[in-house]
Design a binder for these strands. Structure first.
Length: 805
RNA sequence: GCCGCUAUGGUGGAAUAGGCAGACACAAAGGACUUAAAAUCCUUCGCCGUAAAAAGCGUACCGGUUCGACCCCGGUUAGCGGCACCA
């Protein structure tokens, strides 16, 4: 019988679709398992070979969980708002909704082609008004709690997309999507106060099982630092508040720096003797993008504020004040005390501008370079009451002194900024807010949700940076829900991150038109037990959705503090030479081609076999054959197996070992070694023969990996007649630990640490037995001859090492 | 610069409470079957050496701990990812 994968895969996909064996049942008495993958963006190019890697892995986990009698929720959906679709629509004058619909259809077909056990009845689409109604609803709740606010601030402006970008969308000073230059621009924007959750976003990482690098990356991104805020008086009478993490070095503060945007600069305009020079510098800084500013970090620039001096509160000394763009207005207080002896940037600036350098921590040569080591060994000098203390002692001592004098206090700062939530784009969720001439910003009443995206003639953003919606005067002009007067709708839309911040909740109850999901469903399915996704989403999507979840938790809507109990990440699939796959390199692999040539089961198996799941791997078309060959070999066992349902003596140990290995490896995402264990077992079957019972076990183990072929064999071998379809099995093979070991083991024999041979002894043999066997070994004897056995080291069932002198 | 990760045959990769390095595959070479090809099956496959053995060398590099190190420690180099004037 030939392995006709095309016919077999079609047959079983049709049956699964009809009989729905993968439907999740809310409220079922079995233990629940919620496995989640990052839902795809349905691009026009269709499924990329990068998709099947994480999807197949989670499919395997979920299929195995079902066989272990869990009630599994394994959903799928589409994150369908976004720029590529919009840009395609602009170019081809097709409505983005039509493009999206077509792309989703294509993705759906491709995903079904790969045989994933999704519960398709729960599929969500973020562009469906029944879905984004609740995205808008969550925004309104945030507004009501003061977490959504509108403010004018410098934003990242993409010169090509004509659109505001979040900080996270700017990569190396250019737009993440189109690669064009990004400049700073003042704009009124909706913001979400994620910074209010900064501490909880750090603290609650302790309670979840995320791979360590995700945790560290999130913590670095949030960037908590502990220091002190200190007030410096000035000769103009205004007090300057600065932030420092090194209060211990205050005696070394010899000048101060304000960011060019600091409000005092303007305030002091009339009192400065060099205002023209100052104004020119401020103006130049304003015209630079963040990137330009940071790119010039080799060479410090700045201007002295002539006419004002700061007063160092610890010693009363007057010190000059500069403005420089190495101080950021967005962090701390936008003003610093500069300690050139112990900070690289300050040192560099001081050298250029001729400022005094005062050493306050012993250990370096501050004329040569800043001495920045902050450890226990540094001893304070030139620091009055701190002299002789270590840095570690001086920090709290100074903080205490500042508090006693009433000029400073401990302060925690975060690098994390609030989330710019407005986009001047068409293809996103409309922000459900109305601006009334008398009442100001007014939220739309919840009954009026969803606020549906209107039809427009042109999707192009306007040249002044407003959303295309602003041209829809019929839609924009409305009445105030509050006073009934004239009002206008917000024309900005939400960023793509909005819809993906809560989609895992909608899966729990996707058709609910009363709530985002019912309490019953939320309580039954929460939290997501295992979420796998890409590292590129660690500081964006993952952080944003944790923030939204915590907000919903505070409202009493979701029952858990954290959305995801466990987070893992997959590596990328690279092209043949280890290069990134891209259209321009022409090395893009289309999963359809692999499926056509080898079948979906081979595709699934191979993409799991290819290497360590967490690491990047290069795709090789040649290597796929090996996985296909393995499936062929399994297929051919149908005709070779005996009728016995027992394990044969020759295969018994291998059976138990393989069951153990495959079971444990799947839970640890080591699919590659699970597969190699099954390959070895099949090699054994070819050498020793195979019984029907052995084959049954193999099929159970293999079914999550190659579900279609296994269903067919399951039916052919008569198992389906006995216990039903493979997809409905709730039996996972078990192993007997005692039977995973043979009666005899082969042990390595070393003489003085060098391998000299092997001996076969009964399992768990004591030293005497092994030693006797080892000495009987011809080669070992040769190396021991004429020497004294000084010591013998035995590692049971593994090795014996004879130390002979 | 800071944080994190990685380095193993021609290739993808196995192996860590410190215990036979190279499992499982791909490629290659030889053979069987075949009119032939494909498919399949068998054999070889780290380096050096040998008639074949043996001996020796070998997990990026240098050193250490240990009876024993891919694994632990110190240092170096190269590469990948993230952050980047965050005071």
């Amino acid at each position: 019988m030939k392995y006709d994968f095309t016919a077999i895969e079609k047959k079983w996909q049709a049956r699964w679709e009809q009989e729905k064996p993968f439907a999740a049942k809310t409220g079922d008495a079995r233990e629940k398992f919620y496995g989640l993958i990052e839902f795809p963006y349905p691009s026009g190019q269709g499924l990329h070979v990068g998709h099947p890697r994480p999807f197949t892995a989670m499919d395997i986990i979920c299929r195995k969980k079902r066989m272990q009698n869990y009630n599994v929720l394994f959903p799928i959906g589409f994150d369908a708002f976004g720029l590529p679709t919009e840009n395609y629509a602009i170019k081809n004058h097709i409505h983005p909704a039509i493009v999206t619909k077509k792309n989703i259809e294509n993705f759906t077909n491709q995903l079904k082609m790969l045989g994933y056990s999704f519960d398709w009845d729960r599929a969500v689409d973020t562009t469906d008004p029944n879905y984004y109604k609740w995205t808008q609803w969550i925004f309104l709740q945030m507004y009501k709690k003061g977490l959504a606010y509108k403010t004018t601030m410098p934003v990242n402006w993409c010169t090509s997309c004509k659109c505001v970008l979040a900080n996270e969308e700017v990569v190396n000073g250019v737009c993440e999507r189109c690669g064009s230059e990004v400049i700073r621009k003042e704009k009124s924007q909706w913001m979400l106060a994620i910074t209010k959750y900064a501490q909880r976003l750090i603290d609650d990482l302790d309670d979840v099982d995320y791979i360590e690098r995700v945790k560290t990356q999130q913590k670095n991104w949030i960037g908590r630092s502990t220091g002190a805020e200190v007030t410096f008086q000035t000769t103009l009478g205004d007090d300057l508040l600065i932030y420092t993490t090194r209060p211990d070095t205050m005696f070394g503060a010899t000048y101060m720096v304000l960011s060019p945007e600091h409000p005092y600069v303007k305030k002091w305009q009339d009192k400065l003797n060099n205002w023209d020079e100052v104004a020119a510098y401020v103006d130049a800084a304003a015209h630079k993008s963040d990137f330009e500013r940071s790119e010039l970090n080799k060479e410090k620039t700045g201007v002295r504020l002539d006419g004002v001096m700061g007063i160092n509160p610890v010693n009363g000394k007057q010190i000059p004040i500069f403005i420089s763009d190495y101080v950021l207005v967005t962090y701390g207080t936008g003003a610093i005390m500069a300690v050139p002896a112990h900070d690289d940037r300050d040192w560099e600036f001081a050298k250029k501008f001729g400022c005094e350098i005062v050493e306050v921590v012993k250990g370096g040569n501050v004329e040569e370079a800043a001495f920045t080591l902050k450890d226990d060994t540094g001893i304070m000098v030139n620091s009055d009451f701190l002299n002789g203390m270590t840095v570690k002692q001086a920090i709290p001592a100074m903080k205490q002194w500042l508090v006693e004098k009433g000029i400073g206090k401990e302060k925690v700062n975060y690098k994390l900024r609030d989330w710019v939530f407005s986009r001047q784009r068409y293809w996103g969720e409309p922000i459900p807010m109305v601006k009334c001439e008398t009442c100001g910003w007014v939220p739309l009443p919840e009954e009026e949700l969803p606020l549906v995206l209107p039809q427009v003639d042109s999707y192009e953003p306007t040249d002044d940076g407003e959303s295309p919606l602003s041209k829809m005067t019929d839609w924009v002009n409305t009445t105030c829900p509050c006073c009934g007067g004239k009002a206008q709708r917000e024309t900005d839309t939400m960023p793509q991150w909005a819809g993906s911040s809560w989609y895992y909740l909608r899966y729990m109850d996707p058709h609910n038109d009363k709530e985002l999901a019912s309490k019953e469903a939320l309580e039954y399915w929460s939290p997501v037990d295992w979420y796998n996704g890409g590292m590129e989403h660690t500081t964006l999507h993952l952080l944003y959705s944790r923030f939204w979840h915590k907000f919903l938790y505070d409202l009493g809507i979701v029952p858990t503090k954290e959305p995801y109990q466990k987070r893992t990440a997959h590596g990328m699939i690279l092209g043949e030479g280890g290069e990134k796959m891209s259209k321009s390199r022409g090395n893009v692999i289309n999963p359809n081609d692999i499926v056509d040539q080898y079948g979906a089961d081979t595709m699934r198996l191979h993409i799991m076999f290819i290497g360590d799941f967490e690491k990047a791997v290069s795709w090789s078309n040649e290597a796929v054959k090996g996985s296909k060959r393995f499936l062929d070999r399994v297929w051919n066992l149908q005709d070779a197996c005996t009728d016995s349902m027992e394990y044969s003596a020759k295969n018994e140990t291998a059976m138990h070992k393989t069951i153990r290995k495959v079971t444990k490896d799947i839970d640890e995402l080591k699919m590659n070694t699970a597969i190699s264990a099954m390959m070895s077992l099949v090699n054994d079957f070819y050498a020793n023969g195979v019984t029907r019972g052995e084959l049954k076990t193999l099929l159970l183990l293999l079914s999550p990996f190659a579900p279609h072929m296994v269903e067919e064999m399951w039916e052919n071998l008569g198992f389906a007649a006995e216990t039903g379809k493979m997809a409905c099995q709730n039996e996972w093979p078990t192993w007997d630990e005692a039977k995973t070991v043979d009666a005899n083991v082969e042990m390595a024999v070393q003489v003085c640490g060098k391998l000299r041979g092997t001996v076969v002894v009964p399992v768990d043999s004591e030293q005497d037995t092994v030693l006797a066997a080892a000495l009987a070994h011809e080669k070992v004897a040769r190396f021991v001859e004429g020497k004294n056995l000084v010591k013998v080291i035995l590692v049971k069932n593994k090795l014996i090492n004879l130390i002979a002198k």
